[in-house]
Write a protein that binds this DNA or RNA. Structure first.
Length: 515
RNA sequence: GGUGAGGUAGCCAAGUGGUUAGGCAACGGUUUGCAAAACCGUUAUACGCGGGUUCGAAUCCCGUCCUCACCUCCA
């Protein structure tokens, strides 16, 4: 169902098959995607952002290729960690959850992630969760253990009863026993069994169920939610690589045991790699994390997104953190990405300022070649994205197209070349640039809006005010008017040392804060 | 112990058998009062190490070293 027949079919790496294979959807022209979202006990770090961006890219690519995508991303707003954190802060767990879920949405929106079609919450899916557990008990795949005293009962999944257990993560049950540290829990029939429902004491944060008051186990919500919105056997299930075991393995076990003889729970499994700091996985438990909000304070959202996209979604990303001598913390890799975003926006700004005649006839050779190179770059970009979301190649194509645009713009500015031919190349190239950027989810605002917001952010980081810089610039403009170039150069140098670059253009002097 | 990911030029990072990845930094050129931006060129016959297959290997095979992750909460 490609909207453009010349583009190759989409293929992705499937963790279950351990290979790249063509995407097969159960319903022509439609794609169903379920992604594991956050557990809302704290703000998101850039590892969460990476996962969201990776699957946002998937959804964008699918939509660009003509698929109608139903994208479900859950919010685990009921969890022991939320309860524990709420006890620390004195907040109601539900309030903490709701607050963090809102911040997560804000962060991901800032990073250009399109809102999922459905974002179900555990707290609003309890009846469906109870229903799946009930099915599992009826299918002998799970068993209830009565609670004691005023505690509700527990329900456990009978791992050994599910024949396919381990197929996603490549583990076998007996090898796991020797390696895993398993807490002795007398209520379980087998140490491998995991909780579907956990009984809670009277007065605790809990919901009613046939087994007494309690809360759902960690994995069951995804089985219930995906069934609710996508049904059994949906197309793609996504999440971070650390979820393969046990979370996704358990989802498969639950869903396939609840709906036996109905085929695979999900047709294809995609997993994103980690964000590392100093070669170690960024994680809450290690404490080596950078929150999305930290990152957004120091860099533009577009730059963060580009940095994440510039690495293949399955590989690791090293998030560089550098402490400057003055104590400030910077992210050099993201700064680098921000320069690239600057370049692309600057190119677009030049295009926007231009009004030019457009040739419709046969183009002279050099322009024809430029046009061919743009079209080849565009083709390459979308072919790469179709090949397991190779975004880095699409980004490379972006630079190639931008270089052609700037080359044409330079010719135009210098009043050289064939203007209508230049106009035609610029028209095609800028359209291709925007189209690719759109699928990548970058260059989402106007160049002027970007310039305005990055200037404000960079000035704030430098501790300078706009009027202060404007004053200096005006001083220099006056000096130049009097041909006092020594004074003008001194001011230029002074501004340069604090990170401000000047540009003497035909319409006067403009300035920019360097990243 | 089991399972998986990765080691590519100063740095970041694509690439799974044969013609350019791309970016950053540095340097040279065009342009500029000087700069910046932009464009062109150079740095770059790079692929952890040792064997092997092949006319040809970063890419396939065997061995080996190193890093990281999962097996416990984790995107």
């Amino acid at each position: 169902m490609a909207s453009e027949p010349s583009l190759p079919p989409i293929q992705v790496y499937d963790t279950l098959a351990r290979s790249v294979h063509p995407l097969a959807v159960r319903e022509e022209g439609k794609a169903s995607v379920y992604c594991c979202g956050p557990t809302t006990y704290d703000v998101a770090h850039v590892g969460h952002a990476r996962s969201a961006v990776a699957f946002d890219l998937l959804v964008r690519v699918l939509r660009h290729r003509g698929y109608t995508v139903t994208h479900v991303r859950n919010v685990t707003d009921v969890d022991d960690k939320i309860l524990a954190r709420a006890k620390e802060t004195g907040e109601e767990p539900t309030a903490l959850s709701a607050r963090m879920a809102k911040l997560y949405d804000e962060d991901m929106e800032a990073l250009g992630c399109v809102s999922p079609t459905h974002a179900p919450r555990v707290s609003e899916t309890i009846p469906e969760i109870v229903d799946v557990i009930d099915r599992l008990i009826k299918n002998d795949a799970a068993y209830a253990v009565p609670g004691e005293g005023n505690r509700g009962g527990d329900v456990y999944f009978r791992v050994r009863a599910f024949r396919g257990y381990g197929k996603l993560s490549g583990r076998n049950i007996d090898e796991m026993r020797s390696g895993a540290r398993i807490e002795v829990d007398e209520r379980k029939e087998d140490p491998l069994d995991f909780a579907l429902w956990k009984g809670a004491a009277e007065g605790e944060w809990a919901w009613d169920s046939p087994w007494g008051r309690g809360r759902p186990g960690w994995h069951i919500e995804c089985s219930a939610m995906s069934a609710k919105f996508l049904g059994h056997g949906f197309d793609i299930h996504g999440g971070g690589m650390d979820l393969i075991f046990p979370h996704h393995e358990n989802e498969i076990a639950q869903s396939e045991a609840a709906f036996p003889n109905q085929g695979n729970f999900a047709n294809c499994w995609m997993h994103n790699g980690f964000v590392n700091i100093d070669k170690e996985k960024m994680s809450k438990s290690l404490g080596n994390f950078v929150t999305v909000r930290d990152a957004l304070q120091r860099n533009d959202a577009e730059a963060i997104r580009l940095y994440l996209l510039a690495h293949h979604y399955r590989g690791p990303i090293g998030w560089e953190v550098e402490k400057l001598s003055d104590g400030r913390v910077v992210f050099p890799g993201v700064d680098d990405a921000e320069k690239k975003i600057d370049y692309l926006f600057t190119t677009l700004a030049r295009v926007n300022e231009l009004t030019v005649a457009v040739s419709s006839g046969e183009l002279p050779k050099p322009y024809n070649e430029a046009l061919a190179s743009v079209n080849a770059a565009r083709q390459e970009a979308f072919a790469s994205l179709a090949d397991d979301l190779a975004a880095a190649n699409a980004i490379a194509a972006l630079y190639r197209i931008a270089a052609t645009l700037n080359e044409m713009l330079d010719l135009h500015v210098r009043k050289k070349g064939d203007r209508p031919a230049i106009g035609r190349v610029i028209g095609v190239a800028s359209h291709a640039l925007r189209e690719i950027a759109d699928v990548l989810g970058i260059l989402r605002v106007s160049p002027t809006a970007y310039a305005r917001r990055t200037r404000a952010q960079r000035l704030a980081l430098l501790g300078r005010s706009e009027s202060e810089i404007d004053g200096k610039v005006q001083e220099r403009v006056d000096a130049r008017a009097q041909k006092d170039f020594a004074r003008a150069d001194a001011i230029r140098k002074e501004l340069e040392t604090i990170g401000v670059e000047l540009f003497d253009g035909a319409d006067g002097t403009t300035w920019k804060v360097r990243k």
